[in-house]
Design a protein around this nucleic acid. Structure first.
Lengths: 224, 224
DNA sequence: TTGACATTGTGTATCTTTGACACTATGGTC
DNA sequence: GACCATAGTGTCAAAGATACACAATGTCAA
C-alpha cells in the first residue's frame, strides 16, 4: 500500500539540526532538548527536525529552533551536512547542520509547559547525545574556535551593550586562556567594530566601566 | 497511481554537485559538462547527480565525478548545501556541493566517446551555467582563496613532483599577484611539507631546477 | 671552447606586528 | 577620608613579514 507521496526512486528524509551555543555562568554552554519519542527516547539531542517541502534550509533551522526552544533572531550559520547511511535507525536521513550563537541576555527558553525538556548544558559536561549529534557539536565547536581568530563572531555572544571586560571574559572562555588586558583592548578597538555609548556601567564598589555597542550588530566581519 | 517508493510526507530529492578546479595553461580552470536532457538542455553545469539511497554523500560526489568525467582520487571537500525551494524546476532538490582540486598532470578526461560534453573552462570565461551552479562556483572560489592563506591546499594542484618555480606560478595564478621569489621559497620551505628528490628538472637552455615532492601527499594541513 | 642566454638559487636589512609588563584613576563602602 | 575593587592606560623587545640584487648552472650557437 502506498502513502500519499510517491517517487520513482527512493529518497532520503532531510532534516536540519542546530547546535546552539551561549555563554552562561562563565562557561560555554549548549542547548539540548530531550527526545520524547523513539528512537533514542529520553536522550538529549540538538534541536531540529524535518524539512518542510516548500521551505528553505535556513528557514527550517530557524523554525525548528523557534518551535522547540523559543529562540529566534540570533546568529545562525550553516555548518556541514551529515549523511552517513546509518546515522538514523529510521532509515536514510540527511541532516543539514547549523550552529547558532545566543547573546547572554536572551537565555529565556520557551514557555514553561515543556521547559523541562529544553536545557542548557556546559559543553564539557554534555550527556550522551542521540544520533551523531556529538559529532556535530564537536565540529561546531571547532568552527567556532577557528572563526574567533579571523572574524568578529564572538561579538554575537554579547548583549546590545557591554563593557570591554565583559567582552574579554567571553574571549577567555572561548579560547580557554587568560588574555592581557591592555593588548586585548588595543586589538579590539583597532577593529573599529564597536563604539562607546554615553552610559557607564557601575557594578559594585569600584570604578564604573565604559559601555560599548556594535556598530553593525548583525554583521560578522572577516578580519586580518 | 503510485511509483514504487512512497512516504507519509513529501521528500526533496538530494543531489551532489562538484566544482572541479585545476590549473591549466597558466589559468585557473573549472570542469563543466554539457547537459543532455531537460531542464537546461545543452547548458553547461557542474558534474553531479542524484544520491543513491544507500550511499554516503561524499561517495556520491566521487561516483558522479568518476562516471561523468573519469576523474578520481583527487582532493575533495564538502563546500555548502544549497536548498532554495526553487533552485530546480523539476521540484524540490537539495544539493550538497563539493569542490575538488585536480593536479595538472591528471587532466585527461573520460573516454573520447562523450568527451565532447566534458570540458575545461577558464574561470573568468565561464558560459552561463544551469541551475544555481554559478553561485556554487563563486562560493567555491572564495573558499579556495581563503584556504590558500591558512592551509597547504594549493599543493593539491601539483603533480607528484614539481619545482619551486612551478609551485610559485600556481600560487601566483590563484591569488592573481606576483610574489617575491626569495620570500616565497623561504615560507614554503619553512612549512616542512615538501622534500627534495634526487632528480633535477632540465627544461630549456638554462640551469636545471631542484625537484620536490610532498611528504604527505594526501594531507592538507592548517598552518599558522 | 667560449660567450650569450635563461632560469635557478641564495642573504640581509628594514619595517610591521605581536607580546610582555605595572601603575594610576575612579567610584563605592565603611 | 581610608580602603577596596575593578577600569583604564603606554612602552620596549622580540618575532615575523617584506623589500631587494647578484652569482650559479646548464644549453645552445658561433
Amino acid at each position: 500500500m502506498c502513502s500519499q507521496h510517491c517517487y520513482q526512486y527512493p529518497r532520503p528524509a532531510v532534516t536540519t539540526d542546530v547546535a546552539v551555543f551561549t555563554i552562561r555562568d562563565q562557561r560555554l554552554q549548549l542547548l539540548l532538548i530531550q527526545r520524547a519519542g523513539e528512537p533514542y527516547k529520553n536522550r538529549w539531542a540538538l534541536p531540529g527536525g524535518f524539512l518542510d517541502i516548500e521551505e528553505g534550509l535556513e528557514a527550517c533551522a530557524k523554525r525548528e529552533l523557534a518551535e522547540e526552544t523559543g529562540i529566534s533572531g540570533v546568529y545562525l550559520e550553516q555548518l556541514y551536512t551529515f549523511g552517513s547511511p546509518n546515522r538514523d535507525p529510521r532509515g536514510r536521513v540527511i541532516s543539514v547542520a547549523y550552529y547558532a550563537l545566543v547573546p547572554s541576555d536572551r537565555l529565556q527558553l520557551k514557555a514553561a509547559s515543556d521547559a523541562a525538556d529544553v536545557q542548557w548544558f556546559a559543553l564539557d559536561l554534555l550527556p550522551p547525545l542521540a544520533f551523531d549529534h556529538q559529532q556535530i557539536v564537536t565540529l561546531a565547536r571547532r568552527r567556532l574556535a577557528a572563526k574567533l581568530d579571523y572574524s568578529t563572531i564572538a561579538f554575537q555572544f554579547m548583549p546590545k551593550t557591554f563593557t570591554l571586560s565583559e567582552l574579554q571574559a567571553v574571549y577567555e572562555i572561548l579560547i580557554n586562556e587568560r588574555l592581557d588586558k591592555r593588548n586585548f583592548r588595543k586589538k579590539i578597538l583597532a577593529l573599529k567594530e564597536i563604539e562607546a555609548v554615553a552610559e557607564l556601567r557601575r557594578t559594585g564598589n569600584h570604578r564604573p566601566a565604559r559601555v560599548y555597542q556594535l556598530k553593525n550588530p548583525e554583521r560578522v566581519d572577516i578580519i586580518k
